[in-house]
Every structure is written in structure tokens, then in C-alpha cells.
């Protein structure tokens, strides 16, 4: 299956092409979402639609880093307008044989695969969606 390959700093990630609507450049400024979890960067106006932008780094609990985040990967999730803030998008590649990711099981991560000799973490669109919703639902 063809995947959109993108990076958060040096780490590479993939999402099925069918789950990605488009990739856009982030706006100069976001509208802050009051009382939203820290991972929510804000909302942006994309051709009249209000897109919620989530910082993938925080969604995946990665350590904070200095690299500028310069692309928004828009998920194709029906009426939900959700964008993932990433460092850069590398391109579209065929990803085969996804194997289980080592370490802690996360719903947002489907597994890992090898691409051109390098590892890529394959994300699960539904899991990402669920992870975002989980951010908003206070755990009791």
C-alpha cells in the first residue's frame, strides 16, 4: 500500500495515502483553542473549513525538540477536520510488511516497516483519531 511518508525531526512516519486528504503549509498564526490539551496547536482556516491542528510529537509522547514544524498533514476523516503538525513530508512510498512495533503498544501506531533500508513507523488513522479524542476526554 502506498503511504505518505513524513518526519518528526529525524524520525520517519507513514500514513496510508487513502487516509490523507492533503498536505498544507501551516498558517502564520493559529487561533488558540481555549481549554484545549497542550497537544492542540490551535485551529486554522483552510478554505473556509476550521481545521484542528495537533502536534504529532505530543500526540505520540515524543520528547520535546527544537526543530521547526513546517507541514500540516490533513487526515481524511469525513467531517472531522484534523491536521497533524510534522517537521516535513518526504513523499509517497509503497510500504510492505508492517511488523509490530517494539515497546509499548499505542493505538495510534500500527507497526514498523523498512523503507530503503531505514525504519518507518506506520501510523493507524483510526488510532490517531482515537488518541486525539482521548486527549479531550479527561481520564478519571
Amino acid at each position: 500500500m502506498r503511504h505518505v511518508i513524513f518526519r518528526v525531526e529525524k524520525e520517519r512516519y507513514g500514513l496510508p495515502l487513502s487516509a490523507v486528504r492533503e498536505v498544507v503549509v501551516p498558517p502564520e498564526r493559529y487561533t488558540r483553542v481555549p481549554r484545549a490539551p497542550a497537544a492542540i496547536t490551535g485551529v486554522m482556516n483552510l478554505r473556509g473549513r476550521v481545521v484542528t491542528v495537533v502536534e504529532l510529537r505530543q500526540l505520540l509522547h515524543l520528547p520535546e525538540g527544537p526543530t521547526p514544524l513546517c507541514r500540516v498533514v490533513l487526515l481524511d476523516r469525513g467531517r472531522r477536520d484534523l491536521g497533524l503538525l510534522v517537521t516535513d513530508v518526504d513523499g509517497i512510498e509503497a510500504v510492505e510488511r508492517v511488523s509490530a512495533a517494539p515497546g509499548k503498544v499505542m493505538p495510534a501506531v500500527r507497526g514498523v516497516a523498512r523503507l530503503g533500508g531505514l525504519g518507518v513507523t506506520v501510523l493507524d488513522p483510526e488510532g490517531l483519531d482515537a488518541a486525539v479524542v482521548a486527549l479531550f476526554t479527561p481520564s478519571k
Partner: peptide, 29 residues
């Protein structure tokens, strides 16, 4: 007024969102 789509509808205290003439999204409280 635009209704809030998930996950924003999960936040209490927001009743909708709109886009101003400047293109800026603004929340309605």
C-alpha cells in the same frame, strides 16, 4: 456560525466557531 466538529465539540464552553472577514477563525463562547 459553524458547529464544532470532533474533537472540539468535546470542550465545554464553546458553542461554535466562525471565520471572520480577515479569514481568522474565532470561537463563540
Amino acid at each position: 456560525l459553524k458547529p464544532l466538529s470532533r474533537p472540539l465539540d468535546l470542550l465545554p464552553g464553546l458553542s461554535g466557531v466562525t471565520i471572520l472577514g480577515s479569514g481568522r477563525p474565532v470561537f463563540i463562547l
